[in-house]
Lab assay of single mutants.
Amino acid sequence: NTCEECGKPIGCDCKDLSYKDRHWHEACFHCSQCRNSLVDKPFAAKEDQLLCTDCYSNEY
């Protein structure tokens, strides 16, 4: 699979995080606004962007 954020392949030695058929490296899986990691945290998706709950609450 190819990472949505950096565009590089996700190798066998990396954790592949996925959501709705989109894939990310663990280090690339972060909020589109504040850039905080979303690994093991709740998040929301809006208009193809992933947002942490704080940024989502502030926007919507």
Rank of each mutant, 00 (worst) to 15 (best):
S18W: 02
C52I: 01
N36D: 08
R35F: 12
E26S: 09
R22L: 11
G11Q: 04
A44F: 02
E4D: 15
F29W: 09
G7Q: 13
S37E: 10
E4F: 12
A44D: 15
S57R: 09
A44I: 05
A45C: 03
C12S: 13
T2F: 07
L50V: 08
E5V: 04
R35N: 07
D21L: 04
C14W: 07
E5Q: 10
D16E: 08
F29E: 02
D16V: 05
Q33C: 00
C34S: 01
N58F: 10
E5H: 14
N36A: 12
S32V: 13
C12Y: 12
E59D: 12
K46G: 09
D48F: 09
G11C: 03
S57M: 02
A45I: 03
Q49M: 12
E59C: 15
Q33H: 07
S18N: 11
D13K: 08
A27P: 13
K20E: 14
C6Q: 00
L17F: 13
D48P: 06
E26A: 14
R22G: 10
C3H: 00
C55W: 00
C12R: 13
N1Q: 01
C3I: 00
E5D: 14
G11S: 05
P9Y: 01
D48E: 13
K8M: 07
F29V: 06
S37W: 05
L17P: 06
D54E: 11
L51S: 05
L17I: 13
K46V: 12
T53K: 14
D13F: 05
L38C: 01
I10S: 01
S57E: 14
Q49Y: 09
L38M: 10
D21I: 00
N58S: 13
Q33R: 12
E47S: 09
G7P: 00
D40W: 02
H23V: 05
C34P: 00
R22N: 06
D13V: 05
P42G: 15
H23I: 06
E26M: 08
S18C: 11
K15Y: 02
E4T: 11
C34N: 00
A45R: 14
P42C: 11
C52N: 05
H30M: 15
S57G: 15
T2A: 02
C6L: 00
C12P: 12
E4V: 13
C34F: 01
S32H: 12
Y19L: 13
L38F: 08
A45N: 07
N1C: 03
Y60L: 00
P9E: 07
A44H: 01
F29N: 04
N58T: 14
S18I: 06
N36W: 05
H25Y: 00
Y56F: 07
S32C: 11
E59S: 11
E5S: 08
S37I: 05
K46R: 13
N58Y: 09
R35H: 07
A44S: 14
Y60G: 15
A45P: 13
T2D: 04
C28M: 00
E47Q: 06
S18Y: 02
C31L: 01
R35E: 14
R35W: 10
C34A: 00
C14N: 13
F29R: 03
F43W: 15
C12M: 14
N1S: 02
A45W: 11
G7M: 10
K8W: 05
V39Y: 06
L17D: 02
C14I: 12
C3Y: 01
S32P: 09
N1M: 08
N36K: 14
C31R: 02
H30N: 11
S32I: 09
A44R: 15
E4H: 12
A27I: 06
A44Q: 14
E5A: 11
Q33K: 09
N1L: 09
G11F: 03
H30S: 10
E47T: 09
D13S: 05
E26G: 09
K46Y: 10
E59A: 15
L38V: 09
Q33I: 05
K41F: 06
Q49W: 06
C52Y: 00
R22S: 10
F29S: 06
F43Q: 13
K46M: 07
Q33A: 11
K8R: 08
D54G: 13
Y19M: 03
C6Y: 00
A44C: 06
C55E: 09
C28Y: 00
A45E: 15
C12F: 11
P42Y: 09
E5L: 13
C28R: 02
E5K: 08
K15F: 05
R22I: 04
C14A: 15
S32W: 11
C31E: 04
H30Y: 08
D13A: 11
Q33W: 02
S18M: 09
E59P: 10
C55K: 06
T53M: 08
K15I: 03
P42S: 14
G11L: 04
C55R: 03
L50C: 06
S37T: 07
N58W: 03
D16M: 10
C14E: 14
I10C: 07
Y60F: 12
R35K: 13
C28D: 04
H23N: 06
Y19V: 11
L50N: 02
L50D: 03
N58R: 12
D48T: 09
E59W: 08
H23Y: 08
A27K: 11
P9L: 03
F29Y: 09
R35S: 09
C3T: 00
G11A: 02
Y56P: 13
E47N: 12
C31V: 02
C55I: 02
D16G: 07
A27Q: 14
T53V: 07
E47G: 09
K46W: 07
K8Q: 13
C28Q: 02
F43P: 14
K41A: 12
K20T: 06
L51N: 06
A27T: 07
T53G: 12
G7I: 02
V39E: 14
D40E: 14
S18A: 09
C52K: 08
L51Y: 11
N36E: 12
C6N: 00
K41S: 10
C12G: 14
D40A: 13
F43H: 14
L17A: 13
L51V: 14
D54Y: 07
V39W: 02
Q49C: 08
K41M: 10
C55P: 04
A44G: 14
C31G: 01
G7E: 03
K8G: 07
A45T: 15
C12K: 14
S37F: 04
P9D: 02
E4K: 11
A45Y: 08
S37V: 07
H23A: 04
S57Q: 12
T2W: 02
K15M: 08
K8P: 00
C34G: 01
W24K: 03
I10M: 03
Y60H: 15
C34Q: 00
L17C: 15
C55A: 04
H30L: 07
E47F: 06
K41L: 10
D13G: 11
C31D: 01
R22M: 15
T53A: 10
K8E: 10
Y60S: 15
S18R: 09
C3P: 00
C52S: 04
K15N: 10
L17E: 15
Y19R: 05
D48R: 09
F43C: 14
I10P: 02
E26C: 03
L38W: 00
F43T: 14
D54K: 10
C28E: 04
Q33N: 10
D40L: 05
Y60W: 10
S32T: 13
C14Y: 13
I10F: 02
P9G: 04
K15C: 03
R22Q: 14
F43L: 15
D54N: 11
F43D: 06
I10R: 01
C28G: 01
E26N: 10
T53W: 01
A27Y: 12
E5P: 01
G7C: 11
P9A: 08
P42M: 05
S32F: 10
C6D: 01
C12D: 14
C34E: 01
W24P: 04
K46I: 11
N58M: 11
S37Y: 06
Y56L: 11
G7Y: 15
S18H: 08
C34Y: 01
S32E: 13
R35Q: 14
F43K: 10
K20I: 05
D40P: 04
Q49K: 15
A45G: 15
D13E: 12
H23W: 03
E26P: 05
S57T: 10
E59R: 15
K20F: 05
L51Q: 09
C14S: 15
I10Y: 01
D21K: 04
H23C: 04
F29H: 03
K15H: 12
H25N: 13
G11K: 04
F29Q: 06
H23D: 00
S37C: 06
P9M: 04
D16R: 08
E59V: 11
P9V: 01
D40N: 09
